[in-house]
Design a binder for these strands. Structure first.
Lengths: 344, 344
DNA sequence: CTGAAAGCGCTTACAG
DNA sequence: CTGAAAGCGCTTACAG
């Protein structure tokens, strides 16, 4: 039967006939303690199976050893990769990751934040649920825990004593690159397909699309901008909207990969051949993008690297909470694949 | 400028002119304290933005408020879903999740476990890296933290004072179902494709394949058992091994979905038409399985539900560490899709 | 080189 | 109904 009683510094000190101050010094590799004593103490620790209590130490030194990470959707590979990157960088810096997931529910997000903040993390990294009001979030976490927001902007007005750092993707430049690529291939009637008006990333991507079009002296027609929920099924269902007026677009910049895959399906059902008689691009570079038919031209944001970056920024913010941290916008890279062809 | 100093029970007690014992009682909703006092205290907490320090409370009461979760590969959607399920159930039970990821490296796994155990979690849930020696793991976490292992068995001999609970998938029954399905369709020459001999899940799946074959009085030929690393690329490269001898198999039970998708690619490259002139099955039901060409018949293990189950088992184990917990084997469900056709 | 003492933020009998 | 006291496991000046 394994002994379940936890062994403490006191147990080691008693067994060695020294004070627990000495044991503590051994723990932190202090040069003050005599080599013989050190060895005796270390042996005893091994023998009794001592394990350090970081929470108790943190209480005494008033230092945090954790960082909280709240993710809107872990089953989305983009955010899973992001989480892996955060965890990797935090571990390397000696912090442990407190995980929470909101499942895109702002109620759950409130509950999760309130619970995590009670563990007094050095900082909170939040990839927010779709609608995330900054005032509610401020109420949940209070003014004294540094916050880094990833990917989506919070909505509403921030209370006076509340501020946060931000890491986002260069949505505008990404969509501009994708549109530019289609223009280079010879397309002129290019749609912007999918996403919701009220999502900040969607607005930014549309701006990038417009930038590229206007740079080529093309004014996008209103019927080329097609709104739909950013899911595969909704996109497939909305495919028809591309073809209600002649001449129809010959290409589409899609809000993201899920939408692009749904559009691929919708086009195929109508007897079209995406990558041969219609060109389209995605955004995110999810794993399915590479193996679809056709493989999807898309924009890669390197989510794992974004995770490492978020961890670094959050820790900086924790060290220097009074500095005014400007938003950081990470670049995004075009991956050319077979879904982008010249116009028929 | 936000006030960064943390407010404590003492601050509230002083401001209200009561002792901190009283404030503590208010916190835990004790009926002992007078309603007026309670209200005064609560108002003051709101005013000062008090946030509870769970670590300090846990230290005093010797109770853990966290459970550690160590994942071998977060970028695999199967494990990401599992992690989401674990987190969901732990949060519901009032625990916070300490996340660690090993990236399939047993070195990183050791480091991560050693770090997490210092936070004295109520239990550890480990989805182990491919090679995970039980003796090393025992050394990292010591005998007093309950351990639940998910999905893969640990290798080697457990030290005398060390034991762990186990949650796995019914690999054998799953592979048997897949093989049975192919047999029903009329196949007789069925290969078992991919996976490594030394992986416990691969051995179990092969046994299920053999069960079904023998139940139909078919002795699998040695050249029908094809070993390869469980990745898409390796599987594609090994496709030729199916056809070195006549008559070649007309169907394959693949070790998992990644292997099945690789084999699909390999077959297509050779001019075959999987789902028309060759039948194959996967295992895991990853998102790509549903959208491939053809969509893949596979086995679903409901990883999110497995995560919830793991959390429940781990907490039971924590409450009653001396009980001898028998391994729990979760069922797996066949999803029929277009990749399984009758023999040509 | 080592020990006695105080304290991190909380809880819990025990008095009153 | 409320307060004084002790203690969870650790660290850190301060003496010696």
């Amino acid at each position: 039967m394994p002994s379940r009683r936890k062994v403490t510094l006191n147990d080691i000190a008693d067994a060695c006939g020294v004070s627990r101050a000495t044991v503590s010094l051994v723990l932190r590799e202090s040069p003050l303690v005599h080599p013989d004593t050190r060895q005796r103490v270390k042996d005893e620790m091994r023998r009794q199976g001592y394990v350090y209590n970081r929470a108790a130490a943190g209480l005494r030194t008033r230092t945090a050893s954790s960082v909280a990470l709240v993710i809107n959707d872990l089953s989305n590979p983009f955010f899973a990769e992001f989480a892996a990157g955060v965890d990797e960088a935090l571990a390397a810096a000696g912090y442990v990751t407190l995980l929470g997931s909101s499942g895109e529910s702002s109620e759950r997000q409130q509950a999760v934040l309130s619970s995590l903040v009670e563990h007094h993390p050095a900082a909170i990294i939040l990839s927010p649920a779709e609608v995330s009001d900054v005032a509610r979030i401020a109420r949940a976490i209070g003014p004294s825990t540094p916050l880094l927001v990833f990917n989506r902007h919070l909505t509403g007005e921030a209370p006076p004593d509340f501020s946060y750092a931000f890491l986002g993707l260069d949505n505008r430049a990404g969509a501009r690159q994708a549109t530019e690529h289609l223009l280079q291939l010879g397309h002129r009637r290019i749609a912007f397909f999918g996403g919701h008006q009220d999502s900040s990333s969607c607005r930014e991507r549309r701006l990038g699309y417009q930038d590229a079009m206007l740079a080529h002296d093309i004014r996008p027609e209103p019927q080329w901008i097609i709104e739909c929920a950013p899911t595969r099924l909704e996109a497939a269902a909305q495919t028809g909207a591309l073809f209600i007026r002649d001449p129809a677009p010959t290409a589409a910049v899609c809000y993201n990969d899920a939408v692009a895959l749904g559009l691929t399906l919708g086009l195929t059902r109508r007897g079209r051949h995406p990558g041969h008689d219609f060109a389209l691009t995605g955004f995110d570079n999810i794993p399915e993008a590479a193996v679809g038919t056709p493989p999807l031209t898309t924009l890669d944001a390197d989510p794992r690297e974004r995770g490492r970056q978020a961890a670094t920024l959050a820790l900086e913010h924790a060290r220097n909470p009074s500095a005014d941290h400007a938003p950081v916008i990470a670049p995004v890279q075009l991956i050319e694949r077979a879904s982008t062809c010249p116009p028929p």
